[in-house]
């Protein structure tokens, strides 16, 4: 694949399950990693401006899954499931929310 001449380069995603144990585990890792910064900005988790290596989650026994999303594929995220990632080259995504009764 020649990424240099291709629009529709894949995206790498890292995701943590949305159950309370794992979501809280992720929050704990985030808070300890960002402890100094969080004193000035306690809402930092909601700013969506932070990235760190998923290995930190693994080290704290928080399960983290990695996928590579290609063109024509969609990714669903569940309530409270932390996710983040980056692009490997030029691409266009389109995203929206939905909600179920539960």
């Amino acid at each position: 694949m020649n990424l240099a001449s291709y629009t529709g380069a894949p995206k790498v995603w890292y995701g943590v399950p949305g159950n309370s144990k794992d979501a809280e585990g992720m929050e704990k890792v985030f808070k300890s990693f960002m402890s100094t910064k969080m004193r000035d900005a306690p809402e930092l988790l909601y700013h969506i401006t932070t990235m760190f290596n998923p290995r930190l989650l693994q080290a704290a026994d928080v399960p983290v899954y990695r996928i590579i999303q290609h063109p024509g594929e969609f990714v669903l995220t569940f309530p409270r499931a932390f996710h983040g990632g980056f692009s490997l080259g030029p691409n266009i995504g389109e995203a929206v929310n939905f909600a179920t009764h539960e």
């Binding site: 969506i48 999303q69 669903l76 995220t77 309530p79 996710h83 691409n91 909600a99």
Partner: peptide, 22 residues
């Protein structure tokens, strides 16, 4: 290349649907 969507959850405990266009 390297453009990042940082760690987050969806507002209000919503699901999200994310499509990757050709």
């Amino acid at each position: 290349i390297f453009a990042t969507f940082c760690y987050h959850t969806e507002d209000n405990d919503f699901y999200s649907f994310n499509y990757h266009h050709y």
